[in-house]
Design a protein around this nucleic acid. Structure first.
Lengths: 300, 300
DNA sequence: CGGGGTTACAGTCGGAGCCTGTGACCCCAG
DNA sequence: CTGGGGTCACAGGCTCCGACTGTAACCCCG
């Protein structure tokens, strides 16, 4: 026989009560069963743990040595199970989170900070990545969750965190730069700088649709990858572009942000539905809580 | 269900093999039984430990957190059982040893030292006590073993360690002090100093017998308890007495020790037969080994 | 010397844990 | 495309272990 935790529990109970009868009552089993299990444990150890006779039960020297050991093992086992249960609740473990580069500058610091404060025993790995890698990472289980912009793909779940105005980005001093608000159609004649078509199909399909709805096809004078590059080209007077207002934090000089009427850019948290762990829900809760309490898009 | 060590063993095996089939083979059980037990553990924790499908088995995040915990508990449990087994072998624990005051001066230091060196994890409590307390202590389980002189009592077991000459103890300058050897009868006319009769009946019965065999009854001029007192009285010329040779180490001046032909004093280890633990045997082995290798009676 | 306490022994029962047989599924090689 | 070898899960049955009850032996105390 190989001893189980049950034997240790029984042993400790008898050692504490110094009575099989009382310990059995406490354990909700019969005294005979308890005697039997203790005997089995003693057999496995090769020595008696108790001296017992009709006038009582006393620990032997071996029992005296074993008692603290058995207690420690039981405590350790409880702690291990409790740790596992904390992991189930998403309070310990590891969480790999991707931030879309264009949202990382304002989302990552407050989200990471708030999450680490709330769940100090979760190892949070945060990474700023491009959209294609972000989606691939979620699908391939390289990331547990991601902060990004819609639209994405059908096989990922998303939850919207914040919505912000979409702005026309114009060179400083542009005739339209003073306006409080614009319509996309107002920019029909402008030279445009946009991201390369290949970067992420769903986005570009949406852009195409928006332009079609505005009644024109933009004259693209240059394509550049990444928000800072676009802002640089606009500041240099190469053309105009269209970005979420939060991008303004990346470049304050030489560009003007003018809201486009009725257009909203959302930031969402995305994850794979098959890997919907509690830690992911916790992250969503923290991020949603932040979004409700402070204006994340201004934080950068 | 409350998890047992078996579940942890099974979990670790699957986590190491990342295969139910292979782990089951290793554990000498069927794959189906293993799946069943893992499922039970998962149910107790409230979450899956493995993601499994037809193309393999992978740890979940909860499993990843739980794995080192489970390993640690198993290691701890093994260590606890090993400690208990060491206790069975008398390698850890506590040993309460009484030394008869008159043997303590030469037995206690080497025995305690040798035992502590051989069994460093045994807490050895050594005490020098009078014969009556020594016997009572063994009977009442206050001592596990004792070093003393026979004869004792029937209900204790003894093992002889060393035998040494019994000597007549004479004042320095006594007419018989120069002899290489004496017979008890040679001392028939001397004034005697002896221990009080009440100290330990079995000894006094033996003394009476010895004197009767020598054909005289000693004229006792004074009774005093303890070897130093007797030696002091002899040195002062009050009378003669009879002691084991090892008592010489307690007083070198003013007394002469002359062996009495054919008389031997034994030193024995005694213990209660009902409490015959391995640690007691170990102590006996150490003491017997010392007795064989060095002359304990000269050590003081 | 009976009553209340202890643990041990004997016999029985139910269920936990194991087994075998089978099925669904995936991947790779032919 | 299809068969073979791999994965794990489901279903049904058996065995034995850990429970149970009933009883006995023993000690101490009133």
């Amino acid at each position: 026989m190989t001893p189980e935790l049950r034997h240790l529990r029984y042993f400790v109970a008898v050692a504490e009560q110094l009575s099989f009868t009382v310990a059995a009552r406490e354990l909700h089993i019969a005294q005979q069963s308890l005697s039997q299990q203790i005997a089995a444990l003693e057999h496995a150890l090769g020595a008696r743990l108790f001296d017992r006779d009709t006038r009582g039960t006393r620990l032997t020297e071996v029992g005296r040595v074993f008692l603290p050991e058995a207690r420690a093992v039981l405590t350790h086992a409880d702690a291990a199970l409790e740790t596992a249960r904390r992991a189930v609740r998403g309070e310990v473990g590891r969480l790999r989170v991707a931030f879309l580069v264009s949202t990382a500058n304002y989302m990552m610091p407050p989200v990471v900070r708030a999450f680490r404060e709330r769940y100090p025993d979760v190892e949070l790995l945060a990474e700023a990545v491009a959209i294609a890698d972000l989606v691939a990472g979620l699908r391939e289980d390289r990331y547990d969750a991601a902060f990004t912009r819609p639209p994405l793909v059908d096989d990922l779940v998303t939850a919207t965190l914040v919505a912000e105005p979409v702005c026309a980005v114009l060179p400083a001093g542009h005739p339209l730069a003073g306006r409080p608000e614009l319509r996309l159609a107002d920019l029909a004649g402008e030279p445009w700088v946009l991201t390369p078509r290949g970067s992420w199909e769903p986005w570009h399909r949406k852009y195409d649709e928006d332009f079609r709805a505005a009644g024109f096809e933009p004259r693209v004078v240059q394509r550049a990858d990444g928000v800072p590059s676009l802002l640089g080209l606009v500041a240099a007077g190469v053309g105009v572009t269209r970005l979420a207002r939060s991008a303004h934090s990346l470049r304050r000089s030489g560009v003007a942000f003018v809201p486009i009427a009725g257009e909203q850019a959302e930031t969402v948290m995305a994850w794979h539905p098959a890997r919907d762990r509690q830690a992911v829900r916790n992250l969503l809760d923290v991020a949603a809580g932040l979004a409700a309490s402070i204006d994340l898009t201004e934080a950068g």
